[in-house]
Nucleic acid binder design. Structure first.
Lengths: 168, 168
DNA sequence: AGCGATGCGTTACTTTATTACAATGCGGTT
DNA sequence: AACCGCATTGTAATAAAGTAACGCATCGCT
């Protein structure tokens, strides 16, 4: 996916869209990527990803766990944490530090460390191209002799859809 | 403090320096700011800030609490959380999302929402000018119709001092 | 002195996350 | 097929982080 599509991607997350298609495609891409890497998409892992993909919101580990338990998987925290950690490690989900929560990655393999835009009204989370932001950060840090290795960039604000609906 | 001093500020945090002077000055500035605002720097609050100022590291709420309890203050979590929240609200301390921890603000009143540079080797935390970074973030977000209200920018990496000491 | 607001301390509880260990199941070899 | 080694899943138990609710003390004001 070329960089100039990113504005489209952000808008697509917040605007109404064919979510079935959207989730399905992400799942397919995920399966393909894992096959390449020789990693296994087991039932719990697959189901965890599907649950995250049901909405564009971030979910807490215990929210995911409740769902898994209700479907016959284990009901202890490690079940959810392990599946989530696996997904994050393989670039199929992201962890949102501000929220202590997890969200499915919508375009795995593209930019594994995007910036996150969290709408405070509808709670949806979009991924944005982090490269220009990370560049600015790296530059500022370099002036102080600091070498940036990993960056957490999360913005809280209002999405276009909620703004259009008159949310202040 | 002018913007071009920021590189100096970053380096000053990580390099050896007269920390007694550094902490003392931050405490004075804090007291002055609170006086202006008519807010009270009570004993617990003052001590909490002093504890944070002892190092340039971020401390967990319970680590602070242990110190407070040992000095005769309350030993229940709210004691620490309230003092820390007060300091954060008044711009005298920052919360680091990645670490679930708090760090004293070294130049209160300057830029209340800086970017943070966290050294993975020495654990010190420096504040960097966030304006250029936030601008890049705001621009990327705006292309997707998203209005950024608050941003969390935290970088993990290696400071100049640790790098010079040969830490990989 | 009296009053309201703020602050501090407590108890109790919720939410989030990890450690440790047993059992299962899968892939590859003999 | 029988075997081995390892990843995976499940459990119990516990740690770490954060909040809610409430009473008492203290500050600042009239």
């Amino acid at each position: 996916m070329p960089d100039h599509d990113h504005d489209h991607v952000i808008a697509a997350t917040f605007a109404p869209h064919d979510h079935r298609e959207c989730a399905h495609r992400a799942l397919d891409e995920a399966a393909a990527r894992l096959a390449e890497q020789g990693a296994r998409l087991t039932p719990v892992r697959r189901r965890t990803l599907e649950i995250l993909l049901e909405s564009h919101r971030a979910m807490g580990a215990y929210e995911v766990l409740d769902r898994l338990a209700a479907e016959g998987f284990g009901r202890q925290p490690p079940v959810a944490y392990r599946a989530l950690e696996f997904l994050v490690t393989h670039g199929l989900a992201h962890r949102l530090q501000r929220l202590n929560a997890f969200a499915a990655c919508l375009h795995p393999g593209h930019d594994h460390h995007p910036a996150f835009l969290i709408c405070r009204s509808c709670d949806k989370v979009a991924e944005a191209a982090a490269a220009p932001i990370r560049d600015a950060l790296t530059a500022v840090a370099a002036q102080g002799g600091f070498r940036v290795e990993r960056a957490t960039i999360e913005a809280l604000g209002l999405c276009a859809t909620c703004a259009a609906e008159g949310v202040a």
